[in-house]
């Protein structure tokens, strides 16, 4: 199908995608944000007639991962374009939206919040521990390359591939990628913790191998967090204990 939306309009939709959660609320979550993002394109598609019915369709519930919203919104635009031409579509706009929002949210949460963000953070923390001010730059670069790629190409591919975007995204094996990122994070966290403990023992002129004793302490803390103790309370308790022991000693 010939695509009609000018690049300028798609660009406006893309920029507006960054405000998807500006009016996030407990009732319709990103609903107003999705409306805001799609509005310039819907107005353009129905510029000769009444854009009301099309706009009205998108003032409802919308909730997915903010970065994964781009392919969803791109496909919704393509479907709206077909509907505007009076063509048949295999799935309606609302059906498509309802079908993909939850799985895309789960994939995005696992990949971006649970995978890439901790991985980028740990890499940056190595630099921060060395006192390097490149730490924030490295974090932003590692995190935002995949993030912006998904936002930009997600919208374009969603619009171009239409319903086939689901298959296009499936090919990336995002859940597997998220697991690899998490595994990498755990490994790097081990190295980072060892480095911090080693530095501390050296500064305190204590035998380095004592550091291995901190491994069970980390496991104990992890167990307490799993039992429901908040990490904030835990850090305050541990800090108070450390201050007390050092003050006595």
């Amino acid at each position: 199908m010939e695509k009609r939306l000018p690049k300028k309009i798609l660009g406006r939709v893309l920029l507006r995608c960054f405000t998807l959660q500006a009016s996030w609320n407990f009732e319709k979550l990103q609903g107003l944000g999705a409306f805001y993002a799609l509005a310039p394109a819907l107005r353009w598609l129905h510029r000769g007639g009444d854009p009301g019915p099309a706009l009205r369709r998108h003032l409802g519930y919308f909730n997915t991962h903010p970065y994964m919203a781009s392919p969803v919104l791109g496909t919704m635009l393509a479907l709206e374009e077909r509907i505007g031409r009076g063509e048949e579509t295999a799935l309606g706009v609302q059906e498509f939206k309802s079908m993909v929002m939850a799985p895309y949210a789960a994939m995005g949460d696992a990949l971006f919040w649970g995978g890439i963000r901790p991985l980028a953070a740990v890499i940056a923390l190595f630099l921060a521990a060395k006192g390097s001010l490149w730490a924030p730059v490295v974090f932003l670069a590692i995190f935002n390359l995949p993030h912006l790629w998904f936002r930009v190409f997600g919208l374009i591919r969603g619009y171009r591939l239409e319903l086939d975007v689901v298959e296009g995204i499936r090919k990336y094996h995002l859940p597997d990628l998220a697991v690899r990122c998490k595994e990498g994070t755990v490994i790097l966290l081990g190295g980072f913790s060892a480095y911090l403990v080693f530095l501390c023992l050296r500064k305190e002129s204590l035998p380095a191998l004592w550091g291995l004793l901190l491994l069970p302490a980390v496991f104990l803390c992890a167990r307490l967090v799993r039992k429901g103790l908040s990490s904030q309370l835990l850090v305050l308790l541990v800090a108070a204990t450390v201050v007390f022991i050092i003050h006595l000693g």
Binding site: F192, E204, F219, C221, A239, V243, H247
Partner: peptide, 22 residues
């Protein structure tokens, strides 16, 4: 007096919290 140790406590508790939830 305990700064060197406290500098380790924060990240290690954070690491423990991540290990508990990842």
């Amino acid at each position: 007096k305990s700064a060197n140790w406290l500098r380790v406590v924060f990240p290690l508790v954070g690491v423990a919290a991540i290990l508990a939830t990842i």
